[in-house]
């Protein structure tokens, strides 16, 4: 399973966020360019309708594929009390015929999106991955070179950290604590509970850029 929070930021403040993340993490950023295809099961296949995501990592010299199943969010009083979403995730690397494979077993393409941006991966109480990406849609099927932004001027920020049944509370606390550092620039919350942009982000970004970035903590 994993803990996840999301938020949005105006593109004009992304550079400041990058400076802040660089300072907090102390690791170099990685380029993100992922073609994500969301497939859904055909009308009569499966006990329940199901959804699977195929991610093609285009940032590598040779594109690599990952199959990703995102499970339902953890429910109950415990889950309500924490400010991050805890959900099951299963991933498997796959060969480049994976799309044809899923078409072959009865899945259909629901939508596709190209995510472009950067990521920081680092250890901070848990193994964090922070991605800052813009979502782009394709005017034609699979035409990633012609992709255009879905929400121009706005980028998605996502923090994920792997967790297990016996430690998700600790991981959630680590994620929540890390979110505090980013609070001047953006609000992060459970996916689906968007709290919009932070009004003071402009001033915080200006301050960050003028001070030359944060120091590694």
């Amino acid at each position: 399973m994993e803990c996840v929070v999301q938020g949005i930021i105006e593109t004009q403040h992304v550079e400041a966020l990058e400076v802040l993340l660089q300072g907090l993490s102390g690791v170099p950023k990685e380029r993100v360019r992922v073609h994500e295809l969301c497939l859904k099961s055909g009308p009569n296949l499966g006990v329940v309708p199901s959804e699977v995501r195929l991610l093609c990592d285009l940032a590598q010299p040779t594109p690599s594929w990952t199959i990703r199943h995102v499970g339902g969010a953890m429910r109950g009083a415990g889950a309500e009390q924490i400010s991050v979403l805890v959900r099951t995730i299963v991933e498997s690397k796959a060969s480049n015929n994976v799309l044809r494979y899923f078409y072959g077993i009865g899945y259909k393409l629901d939508h596709e999106v190209l995510k472009v941006g950067f990521a920081f991966r680092f250890q901070r109480g848990a193994q964090f991955t922070v991605t800052v990406t813009s979502a782009n849609k394709m005017p034609k099927l699979h035409a990633t070179d012609e992709a255009v932004a879905v929400t121009p001027g706005i980028q998605l920020v996502e923090i994920t950290a792997p967790a297990a049944a016996n430690n998700y509370n600790d991981v959630a606390s680590s994620v929540t604590a890390f979110c505090e550092y980013l609070a001047p620039l953006l609000h992060l919350s459970k996916p689906g509970n968007s709290t919009g942009i932070v009004l003071t982000a402009g001033a915080a970004a200006a301050s960050l850029m003028s001070s030359g970035g944060a120091k590694t903590l």
Binding site: V52, T88, E91, S92, K93
Partner: peptide
């Protein structure tokens, strides 16, 4: 795929 693939299939039902 990798060894997690059967688990993906199990989740998809």
């Amino acid at each position: 795929a990798d060894a997690a693939f059967p688990l993906v299939m199990e989740k998809l039902q």
